[in-house]
Amino acid sequence: MSQNEIKNPWTTLSGEEKYENPWIKVTEYQVLNPSGGKGIYGKVHFKNKAIGIVPVDAEGNTWLVGQYRYTLNAFHWEIPEGGSPSHEQAEFSARRELQEETGLTAKKWTELTQIHTSNSVTDEVGYIFLAEDLSQGDSAREASEADMKVWKLPLSEAVAMVLRGEITDAISMTGLLLVARLKDR
């Protein structure tokens, strides 16, 4: 059965914006759930697309970036990532983010997948790219990335970090596992 053949079992009675800033909007909906009971549902709408890039060189190395994530109150390693304005092509944003965070540019780009980062509370869509045929230049980080660390390591070690639970970011996990699968073929 295709996704398009399944009818929406939820009924929206009303919606009220509760909060908005330049990156997100939070709306609370009064709903009838699939069993017909009244309830509420909160949705976080992201104003940008999420972008993740797995750079891989000819020797099978990749690059991770590490930074202190305010929301998690901890330092985390992840693939180069960023936001893409809704009007901007995802690949254009990916090229910019890779250069900003790592100083890398790539001649070959492959869109690997689109994902929903947390479909129970948000409509955020993420685009994950493989970047190859790399050249090193200078990075141009944003002020919020001033403490960012960059680590070049074998792709196999980054995948092992995912499997050990050391990389927990959903876009990073998905991207690294997809690239590892592609490279194994």
Rank of each mutant, 00 (worst) to 15 (best):
N4R: 08
N4P: 04
I6L: 14
I6R: 07
K7D: 09
G15Q: 12
E16P: 03
P22V: 03
P22M: 07
W23C: 15
V26Y: 05
V26G: 00
T27Q: 02
E28T: 12
Y29M: 05
Q30T: 11
V31M: 10
V31R: 05
L32F: 06
N33M: 01
Y41S: 09
V44N: 08
K47M: 10
N48Y: 15
K49S: 07
I51Y: 06
I53W: 02
V54G: 01
V54E: 09
A58D: 13
A58E: 13
E59N: 15
E59T: 08
T62V: 09
W63I: 02
W63F: 11
Q67C: 03
L72M: 08
N73C: 10
A74C: 14
F75A: 13
F75K: 12
H76A: 13
W77K: 02
G82M: 06
P85L: 07
S86T: 09
S86Y: 13
S86I: 13
Q89N: 11
Q89C: 00
S93N: 00
R95H: 05
E97N: 11
E97Y: 12
E97A: 06
E97M: 13
E97V: 14
Q99E: 15
Q99G: 02
Q99W: 05
E100I: 03
L104P: 06
T105M: 09
A106L: 01
K108I: 07
K108D: 04
E111I: 07
L112D: 01
T113C: 14
H116P: 01
N119G: 03
V121R: 02
V121K: 00
T122G: 06
T122R: 08
D123A: 06
E124W: 04
V125H: 01
G126L: 15
A131Y: 00
L134Y: 03
L134K: 00
Q136G: 07
Q136N: 09
D138W: 08
A140P: 07
A143I: 06
K149S: 14
K149H: 13
V150L: 10
V150P: 01
W151T: 00
W151F: 12
L155K: 08
A158C: 06
V159L: 15
M161N: 05
L163Q: 15
L163T: 02
G165D: 00
A170V: 14
S172M: 00
T174E: 05
G175C: 06
G175M: 04
G175K: 00
L176W: 00
L177C: 09
L177D: 01
L177M: 15
V179C: 02
A180M: 05
R181V: 03
L182H: 12
K183C: 04
